[in-house]
């Protein structure tokens, strides 16, 4: 049988083994970097989450005290809720908006490259710069946004100060910042859909809208799945934007404190490395759970072409 060799352990020729060795050599720098800068700190952080450590004197083992303390603290629960709301609102918004724009950008009209570039620009801008600029735009008394609203005689809200809308204000900026990346990915997905489906649909007399619902969206689901997963992972870790926009004001932080902000604050501002590690570890578990759930759920809605 031709596949008998696949059942037994393959015997590699000397040449093949040498090739494999070279392959390992080529990935070695990345692998080592990954190990030294990601795996080792992650493992260390896991170990530290069971300790009380101020970063200077030796850590003391305190078992699960950090975790217990976390769930007893009202501010951690608040943090969890904030992060959850942030993700649940921002990711679908960014994906839906991106899909709409990508469909519009997936046409043959003049100057399309310019439009695509414009939509992608926020993505290649540093989050720090984005945060700074939006902080000024949002300024209640001197900001551009409220100036324009004032010209139109509309109410001028305190975007970052009203606890009811502060989170939404930051979500808007986050969506604005990430939508460009989603557009590029979805655009690539759209262009991967074979024209033959549309031709067939046209012959059958399907409207443009029907085509979108019955062909484009289903065939786009693998891309959407990818965009959703990566989007969720990064929005669960949101930090830089919030740090820049309201970071130095403790009073404004309450409605906006996210999980990673909590990690930063405990670890680097209050020097409670063990407590911070425990939060980081819980965040890791949360992201892992969400991602596994999404993979389990994907059978229900993701269609792979062919």
């Amino acid at each position: 049988m031709s596949n008998a060799s696949a059942l037994t352990k393959p015997k590699w020729s000397k040449r093949k083994r040498k090739e494999a060795l070279w392959a390992y050599l080529f990935i070695a720098p990345t692998l080592l970097g990954l190990f030294v800068f990601y795996m080792m700190p992650a493992l260390a952080s896991f170990g530290l989450s069971f300790t009380n450590w101020n970063g200077i004197t030796p850590p003391q083992f305190i078992g699960l005290d950090n975790i217990v303390r976390l769930f007893q603290s009202g501010s951690f629960i608040r943090t969890l809720i904030n992060t959850f709301v942030f993700t649940v609102v921002s990711v679908p918004m960014a994906v839906i908006l991106a899909t709409g724009i990508a469909v519009l950008l997936n046409q043959k009209i003049k100057g399309m490259v310019v439009y695509r570039t414009i939509y992608f620009l926020p993505m290649v801008t540093m989050p720090v710069a984005v945060g700074m600029v939006w902080k000024w735009l949002y300024n209640t008394d001197y900001g551009l946004l409220n100036y324009l609203l004032g010209l139109l005689h509309l109410p001028q809200p305190a975007w970052l100060f009203n606890p009811n809308i502060a989170l939404l204000s930051v979500i808007a900026v986050y969506v604005w910042m990430t939508v460009g990346n989603n557009i590029i990915l979805i655009l690539a997905g759209l262009q991967g859909i074979s024209q033959t489906y549309y031709e067939a649909a046209q012959i059958d007399g399907a409207s443009k809208f029907k085509q979108l619902i019955k062909i484009t969206i289903p065939l786009l689901t693998p891309t959407l799945f990818f965009v959703f997963i990566t989007g969720m992972i990064s929005s669960l870790q949101v930090f830089d934007l919030i740090f820049i926009m309201i970071g130095d004001s403790h009073v404004l932080l309450e409605p906006l404190r996210t999980l990673v902000y909590g990690v930063y604050e405990s670890g680097f501002e209050y020097s409670q490395m063990g407590y911070a590690s425990a939060q980081a570890f819980l965040l890791f578990l949360a992201i892992l759970t969400v991602t596994i759930a999404q993979f389990a759920f994907q059978k229900k809605w993701v269609h792979y072409d062919g």
């Binding site: 060795l21 050599l25 070695a28 080592l32 970097g33 030294v36």
Partner: peptide, 21 residues
């Protein structure tokens, strides 16, 4: 050949680890 390869690998490893620590 095999030996030099191992040496190269070791150097890469130690360089990265030293740089890290």
């Amino acid at each position: 050949m095999g030996k030099t390869l191992h040496i190269v690998l070791l150097i890469v490893i130690s360089a990265v680890i030293l740089a890290g620590c």
